[in-house]
Design a protein around this nucleic acid. Structure first.
Lengths: 251, 251
DNA sequence: GAATGTGAATGCTTTCACAGCA
DNA sequence: TGCTGTGAAAGCATTCACATTC
């Protein structure tokens, strides 16, 4: 796979659509699974099914990255894994800090999905003095007082906020002041950040509310038209695994 | 997206855009906060700022629900809270089961955001016999063997999957077979479900990967043009709190 | 005067469908 | 022949800007 930047035709329209970026991790996961099974190549149709999107969308997405496939054959799994990883910036190491080590923070600290992609949990931080020193996920929790030093010493640019809503903005401000420029927010609050800082949020209750909306709709339409539950395992082409919604704000 | 279902007769053009639905919980949260501070009315401008969107979008969103505002004045907070809650189906009680009581499952069980919106955790289910009976969030964990009975007895239609990836599809199949028609999936897998079942997924590692993409972009553009980090606290109008991304698949 | 509600304009995303290449 | 890569068409979502209403 080409030394770093194979070709970069200079011209390639910098600027991959946000919707495409949001799907790259999906493709990457499916590809990694194939790679582990030593599958050498895959067609857009097969890969799309594994990722839960339709093949036209997938091909269009890949076309923004370059022409990495072979007509009549498909895509080379290893090569694609590398190209997507590079595009996402996962070929480098990203130290991350998690602030707020409650139930959720602990769950995140133990989450295996981080380490497996270029993320490394550099520190766990909590405001409760009683937590300080306690090991969580094999790592001692540090006190908020040292937040700035931790960020600086580890060159952290990505922070995860898992504190209660009330503390989130304050923590956010400190993270940003210390140099963090990307934040993943689990607290149910709208964070204010300066220009140049990205925030994505995950809100469990919002997801459930959206489900409730559709659920209610179903109940109300009982027996109207095509209703009947399908066989099961329709999989095929569902809508598209992404309604896309999260929040990316170039702030 | 629409499931097969043909037109939607009758009154108000049934069919609120998916993007709008995804923002209703945001508005609801902002409104609830205002309500708690006994604020009687709010303008689209103010509410939009509180929710992190721009006012034109908010007004357009509300226009899909009906004309609940007063020109020259704004919106009545209480009234809007009610209307949005009703639209989202939160005026009714939604029993929910959480399957997979590891770190994440426990965090979800303890999460306050559920109860405060019409959700009620009806049961916690885990496959580990050692967990059975153990109290989590003040509630005994039940064994997977009883999954079907629990679903049926409680009339559960929404299930949350917080198991390891390997167990997710199997759990999903059992939930669906038992009558669940909406699933919130935290396991990093694409779930196959029959038509009529909605799945939304939350993937922590995906969110981080999207942040890494933007982070990398920033680093690469250092000093290119406007680069320079902004003062901090620009807040004002960020992009829009929602890039929207989750996955709703009418499956 | 103030702020909503909404056609029209703009911009993105998805889907189609087929030319082009291995 | 088989499957990618991509213009063009279709579908959604966001933003504009202003007539309308209180």
């Amino acid at each position: 796979m080409a030394t770093g930047r194979t070709h970069r035709p200079a011209t390639r329209s910098r600027g991959i659509p946000e919707a495409t970026v949001a799907r790259l991790p999906l493709y990457l996961r499916a590809l990694t699974a194939l790679s582990e099974r030593s599958v050498p190549t895959v067609s857009s149709e097969e890969l799309a099914a594994a990722a839960g999107v339709n093949s036209a969308k997938l091909r269009k997405d890949f076309s923004y990255l370059g022409s990495y496939g072979t007509r009549g054959v498909g895509y080379d799994v290893e090569y694609l894994v590398y190209q997507i990883s590079r595009e996402l910036g996962l070929t480098q190491d990203w130290p991350v800090v998690i602030v707020g080590i409650g139930n959720l923070g602990a769950a995140l600290a133990n989450y295996g999905g981080f380490a497996s992609r270029g993320f490394r949990v550099a520190a766990l931080i909590d405001a409760d003095p009683a937590m300080a020193g306690k090991p969580v996920a094999g790592m001692p929790v540090q006190h908020t007082d040292d937040l700035e030093k931790i960020i600086t010493d580890n060159g952290v640019s990505i922070g995860v906020i898992a504190t209660p809503a009330g503390a989130a903005q304050q923590v956010c401000d400190r993270l940003v002041a210390a140099g963090v420029t990307s934040i993943l927010n689990f607290a149910p609050t709208v964070l204010s950040v300066p220009d140049g800082v990205d925030v994505r949020k995950v809100d469990l209750s919002i997801e459930l509310q959206i489900l409730a909306f559709h659920e209610q709709r179903k109940a109300g339409e009982e027996g109207s038209g095509d209703g009947t539950a399908a066989p099961a395992a329709a999989q095929e082409h569902r809508k598209g695994p992404d309604g896309d919604v999260p929040a990316v704000m170039p702030a």
